[in-house]
Structures are given as structure tokens and as C-alpha cells.
Amino acid sequence: MALKTISFVGLAPEKLLEAAEIEIQSQLHHTDGELFLYRKPKFKGYNLLRPSAEVQGLLQYFASIGCVCSEYRLAYSLLPNNVDEWPLKSEDLAYYYAFSAAEARVNLEYDERVSNLFEAFEYSSEFARYRYMMNDFIRKYAGSRTISTDIIWHFQYLSKHDDKDQEFSENMTLDS
């Protein structure tokens, strides 16, 4: 699927983007420029799960750096059939960000710096919506689009093991 993505980062206030850049640079400094992962549901007073144009702009900013959590959140916010009233909706963009997140996650499966953090996120109550979204995309598009068997297997596994009741800790960091 050839998709020309559009930037709507400008929907986020400049001060928020400046704070986001400081967070990004701080994390990249600790991982030799390799990883950025923002898992907390709030950033500088903005609830990343509550619909607003500013939040969608911020999520796209974080997603552009490869933040898996932000890519899932952004994908979910873009879903046209999402019951929440997010300002921007696009199934193609939702698909794009969802599978970008899933591919990055699968590729980092054995990276000891983040594998436990991803696992905790994937068994959090927040992630259930993203798992349902991904399973729906897989069911809907597996026959017409190329979807990695690793991604399909990963979400089948998560769906079979979603009863682990693992707590997702906002206090976990890349350094822990």
C-alpha cells in the first residue's frame, strides 16, 4: 500500500513540541540515539488518551521518532469507527501507524532494554483496544495486503494470553 502521509504535527502548540523534543533528546542520549519510548498516558498536562487536535499532533511527533506506544495511540485515534471524537480520522493512516508500531515491536522482541517494557504495555488495560484494532485489521486485510506472519503470530499470541493481569507501570523507564 503506497500511502503519502501528511503532517499534522503543527496542531500541537510550539511549547508542547519543544518540551517533546527535550524528552526525545534525553531518551536518545541514554540509548546512544537508538530508542525513544514514551509510555505514560500524560505529557506536560495533556492526556494522550483524550481526544484533541493538540494530542494528535503530539502523538504524530512522537511517532515520527519511532515511539511504538505513540504509534499505537495515534493509530487508534485515527480510526473512523473509534467511538471517541478525535478531530482527524483516516483508516489508511490508522493502518499505517498501527502496522509501523507492530513491526517495530516485533523487531525489538529480544532487545533487553525494552522487551519487558513492551510486554508490560501489551498486557495493560490500555493496550486491549490496540490489540482489538490490530486483530480487526488483520482479519480485514490479511487477504488483500501483505501482513508479516510475525505480526500475525504476535497478535494471536497476545490474544490467547491476555489474562495475565500484568500491571503497566508508568514509573518504568528505559533505564530500569
Rank of each mutant, 00 (worst) to 15 (best):
M1D: 13
A2K: 15
L3G: 06
K4A: 11
T5I: 12
I6V: 15
S7H: 08
F8Y: 15
A12K: 04
A12M: 05
E14I: 12
E14D: 08
K15Y: 06
L17S: 05
S26A: 08
Q27E: 08
Q27A: 05
T31D: 02
G33P: 02
L35Y: 05
F36P: 01
L37K: 00
L37I: 04
G45A: 06
G45F: 04
S52Q: 11
A53Q: 12
Q56S: 08
F62T: 01
C67D: 07
V68I: 15
C69S: 11
R73L: 08
A75F: 05
A75S: 14
Y76Q: 10
L79R: 15
V83D: 10
V83K: 15
V83H: 13
W86I: 06
P87C: 10
P87L: 08
L88C: 10
L93Q: 09
F99N: 03
F99K: 03
F99C: 07
A101F: 01
A102Y: 02
E103P: 01
A104M: 01
R105P: 00
L108D: 00
L108M: 12
E109T: 15
E112W: 03
R113Y: 02
V114F: 00
V114G: 00
S115M: 06
S115A: 07
N116Q: 13
L117Q: 03
F121P: 00
E122V: 04
E122R: 02
E122M: 08
S125C: 12
R131N: 12
R131I: 07
M133F: 07
M134L: 12
M134S: 06
M134T: 07
D136S: 11
I138L: 10
I138G: 07
R139Y: 13
A142E: 12
G143W: 03
R145D: 05
I147W: 04
T149S: 15
T149E: 14
I151G: 05
I152C: 05
W153F: 14
H154C: 11
F155E: 05
Q156G: 09
L158A: 10
L158V: 11
S159R: 12
H161T: 13
D162A: 13
Q166D: 09
E167F: 15
S176L: 05
